[in-house]
Amino acid sequence: MTGADVLLLALGAVAVGAGALVVATRHLVRAGLWLVVCLGALAGDYLVLTAELVAWVQVLIYVGAVVVLLLFAVMLTRAPIGPSDDLDRPGWAAALVGGGSGLGLAVLLIDAFRWSRVDLPAAGTAERLGEQVFRSWVLPFEVLSVLLLAALVGAIVLSRPDIGRRSADEGGRQ
């Protein structure tokens, strides 16, 4: 057990614990907040694993953007602030499948890696990753841009019902 291992263990415990609360809490808003904790712990994990850039992006995009987006969605759907009782449906099937997949994966991974030990690689700094992206992974990067554009336009179209009406009016005029 090195210091890294201890850190990983601690952060992992935090992440799993927060994750469990995300799926178990009866407060909608608190679920979002526990998610922040979980994602943050994961960012710490990344740091320990020397993936610096990923960690920062995690904090920026996930904690900064996605969770905020989710919380906005919670607000927009007028969710109650306090605890609500109808958040869950009977859970044995979910527990079975969720537990099965989680434990099953864990068993498989333990079976594959045992208690082996590796040295940490060179740190994944922004520079190194940038180099990798532009040396080796330009294509998906470019395609992802199309995807983002589509997501942007799509989200706008869906969120603004008046867009269709406008073109309908134009269609009517022509």
Partner: peptide, 20 residues
Amino acid sequence: RAGRTPVGEYCFLLACAMTG
């Protein structure tokens, strides 16, 4: 032509899907 669908966005999204 029925006019309740945004033509530009519709075509754009279709073209994006085609790109994929």
